[in-house]
Design a protein around this nucleic acid. Structure first.
Lengths: 158, 158
DNA sequence: GGTAAATATTTGAACGTTCAACATAATACC
DNA sequence: GGTATTATGTTGAACGTTCAAATATTTACC
């Protein structure tokens, strides 16, 4: 089942600490944001991201596939999310006129109101939990580091 | 429902980029680790962490509460996870002798074998996805940053 | 133009996590 | 010592995500 294990370079204490800190920080931050949004706006922050993306799109609409690429969501994740948000009245779906397979997600007025109300609390929480504790240079470092990670993973054969 | 919104200091472009990069990197890394473990060892990395914690504990055992604190898991998350892993034969549960409420989770031989087989692949993936792309000083920065975030959130009223 | 391959999206089942409710045992208090 | 309170852990329901399968439409190819 598992290949004969070849070379493994075990993690040093520092490496392990780095990895665990990153892992824990991710989890804590994600949880905090989710709880804040759930408490104040009745949605998780995965749904919030969809609303933001649509509110930034021209005419408040986008094709499912483009939206999924933009957010780096799996098609099915987005589909489920949009179905839920459609039920909430935040989004509508229409057939794409130029491609019969395509579906277009459109932010409704209610959706726009919803995100406008949710945004301030969310931004405050991002500040409280992520940006606030970090110095300007740490923010720069973090951005650099994370962009490095993102590029590396995306340009590799997973 | 929502409080009258007070001051919001919207995110600058740099802040937004930092936050989005962190968020995406977290998601990508987490996903990569999960998929690798699922593929090679039939468990998510939340379960992996439980096995690691137990394998590092004296006598390969720990009380549920201590384990949950150590991993920063909610009691119920741990309970569900352990139930699943008990079904796999990786963990056993016993009553705590000194406290009738307590339960002790014990790593079985099979559990030990399982993690020994899973560890190399996991470590390689951590290297590939997180540590590898970063320079030594970036690793130091990342650790610093994440530890800052962790401390800050934990010492605040959530 | 018709068949095969590729693309876009949805669906349902399985799984993990959260939250609230519950059971049980230990501690505090009088 | 008996009752209220607090601590430990588990349970079940709800929800979001993943994966594999299905459907429908478009593109490529001959």
């Amino acid at each position: 089942m598992s290949p004969v294990i070849a070379e493994v370079q075990w993690l040093s204490d520092e490496e392990q600490a780095t990895w665990r800190a990153f892992n824990l920080a991710s989890r804590i931050v994600d949880g905090a944001l989710d709880r804040q949004l759930m408490r104040d706006a009745d949605m998780g922050h995965a749904h919030y991201a969809v609303l933001v993306a649509l509110s930034e799109a021209s005419d408040y609409q986008a094709r499912m596939g483009d939206l999924a690429d933009l957010l780096e969501y799996s098609p099915s994740r987005l589909s489920h999310a949009v179905r839920k948000m459609e039920a909430n009245g935040w989004i509508e779906r229409r057939q794409c006129p130029t491609d019969g397979r395509g579906q277009i997600a459109i932010l409704t007025d209610l959706g726009r109101q919803t995100i406008e109300q949710a945004a301030p609390g969310h931004v405050n929480e991002v500040r409280r939990v992520v940006l606030g504790p970090l110095s300007a240079s740490q923010q720069e470092q973090l951005r650099d580091i994370c962009e490095t990670l993102i590029l590396r993973v995306q340009n590799q054969t997973t």
